[in-house]
Design a protein around this nucleic acid. Structure first.
Lengths: 351, 351
DNA sequence: CGTGGGTGCACCAATAGCTTC
DNA sequence: TGAAGCTATTGGTGCACCCAC
């Protein structure tokens, strides 16, 4: 609680009313664009409000109506372009029906996340979409559940939380990656590279990926499949370390495009000395097509994912929501990093 | 205005009070952690509140106290990593003193921006930090000014708006780039590539860059210096087009790292057929050190820029703000794309 | 077309009641 | 009896919506 601005006395609705010899109810009707007021009165009120510097107090109105148009989007990393793009879709769907979407950044800290969620509950927000912090547990969402604030969990699953969940089809992603590496490129020894062990997407993807490659007869490289921060820098350092110890697997599915960037750098992909290793990313960030070599990636239209999430939240709030509530299916966008195209050729984003 | 949840009757402070035979004032004191209440009473109140499912209504409290802890960060593009990183700094400084920072995305549309700013004013937010939409004019900020809501303009200047401004030192960036290209690499013909003509940073940087390179005796390539969307894709397409028409300048300062990525791709930098052209980016995104070739870039610590911005806002709100209120000075981080290092060698972010 | 009275929920200043020494 | 220290309460307030007339 901060930020009171002393000094200038605020103008209230009743001041406008008194100044014109009207009642506050009339002024209220004007402010809400009600047709129950004559054109003449309306104009007089608007003019007087303008003259006095009156500013409608939405907060007071919200208190009375028990409604709010604020929807909180609580996420661990605003710098992640995939997540940022998801937010566009959420905003699109909810903005259309009059909600006001704002983003809060937990920086992946449970403490901050708890504080933010508590604040949204306290402010009586209309709804919440949240990507849980990595170390979050069911306890962190108990307050949310009890408050009845409509909530949708995004991308990361939390054990024991029975809130609606929207996320990518991790099993399909794993299968797509496995199929591409084994069937198209004939890889014999593969790995799932990067990602935090606590992140549910890693678990789901890796499981189905491993099952599929094993069925296809390829070997599993456990050393390269250890968990790891999902940053380019961490991936680069880990890969460089592993390359000291021996040759890499001949096919790698990376936890994200960011991870793939670091790995590509370490492998010196696109240079004459490059290691013979097919690299796949996940997310298909806009930059991946620009990379040298262009990064092959498994895409799941993040904007549409955001839209789906918005629709699920609308449903949760008891409002009509037109359109699909099923996350988009992942697609393979094959480029140079796996060997599908020549390394120095530009490749469009659509694959 | 949306999102009323009917059904369950909410528990109010007075319900807790009645249930215990206390007054609402006492419950209020407990909720605010006041020392004016005995330990026994406090515990009883907390237990009863928990049991009844009472949830403190921050909005009602805000109405009474005329204070709010919400600070809005209104920006045109949450997907821009530089901007995202600035938001971290803002959040750090304001969070420390109890404010709650939320981000609203204008997607660079003035209409949406106007709506968002109006909403923040109406909700009586404690303050606003905004990166104006590209086509914004002074009119778009008239309401803000009149409302007295403490505001800081970030990164983009708007003519005729006398609100406090925090941004990078564009002149210094231009000079740094010019000096590096001419003095270190001996470039004879240079250009400023990319950026929207309406963006004040482009104007400031290009002006000082052009003056400095001219003084150093280098020629100016007007065709390569035309304005352009600041995306990697647009830069790639424009560069490819210009390369059809003839050879590129031998030194290019790009409006951002994103632009540099597109240009590097078009020039096939890092490949045997690469054009002899020194490329500099601006922002030094984390990824730039990972790029192939690693991208030389002019850095201006975005987190610190955000901190400065937060402190300026605090001052604007009449609160004490320790620490510098001067934006960090830009620094040259020379890597491979300008020819300072070998193309296939990894380079650390610190240059 | 326009109005009065009541309501949403909690803060705040002033004050009263109770111990204790 | 009185001063000092705690604790808890009353009544008014912040601003606008809503119903009934």
């Amino acid at each position: 609680m901060q930020g009171g601005r002393p000094g200038v006395r605020r103008v209230r609705m009743i001041d406008v009313a008194n100044s014109l010899g009207l009642s506050r109810a009339t002024v209220s009707l004007v402010m809400r664009n009600s047709p129950l007021v004559s054109e003449a009165t309306r104009n007089a009120v608007l003019a007087e409000a303008e003259r006095l510097g009156y500013i409608y107090n939405q907060a007071a109105a919200n208190l009375r109506t028990q409604r709010n148009d604020l929807v909180g989007l609580v996420m661990p990393d605003v710098m992640n372009p995939f997540v940022a793009e998801v937010s566009l879709g959420v905003q699109e769907v909810l903005g259309e029906v009059g909600f006001f979407v704002m983003i809060a950044n937990t920086v992946d800290r449970v403490g901050l996340q708890r504080q933010i969620l508590g604040s949204l509950v306290g402010h009586r927000a209309a709804g919440v979409v949240t990507i849980p912090a990595l170390t979050a547990t069911a306890d962190d969402f108990a307050g949310l559940r009890q408050s009845g604030l409509p909530t949708v969990l995004l991308l990361r699953r939390i054990d024991g939380v029975d809130l609606p969940f929207v996320g990518t089809d991790e099993a399909a992603i794993g299968r797509l990656g496995a199929e591409h590496l084994t069937a198209v490129h004939g890889c014999r020894r593969v790995a799932y590279f990067g990602g935090d062990p606590l992140a549910s997407p890693r678990v789901g993807r890796m499981e189905s990926f491993r099952r599929a490659v094993t069925e296809a007869g390829a070997g599993w490289d456990a050393a390269w499949s250890q968990p790891l921060d999902a940053t380019a820098d961490a991936a680069y350092r880990r890969a460089a370390e592993l390359l000291e110890a021996g040759p890499p697997p001949d096919g790698v599915l990376c936890h994200s495009d960011n991870v793939a960037y670091g790995l590509a750098k370490a492998l010196r992909l696109g240079t004459p000395e490059a290691a013979p290793c097919a690299v796949l990313g996940i997310d298909d960030l806009h930059q991946s097509a620009m990379w040298n070599p262009s990064i092959s990636s498994i895409a799941t239209d993040p904007v549409e994912l955001g839209r789906v999430c918005g629709r699920v939240l609308l449903a949760e709030m008891g409002m009509p929501a037109e359109g699909s509530r099923v996350p988009p299916a992942p697609e393979m966008h094959a480029r140079a990093s796996c060997g599908c195209h020549r390394a120095t050729r530009p490749a469009g984003r659509a694959g």
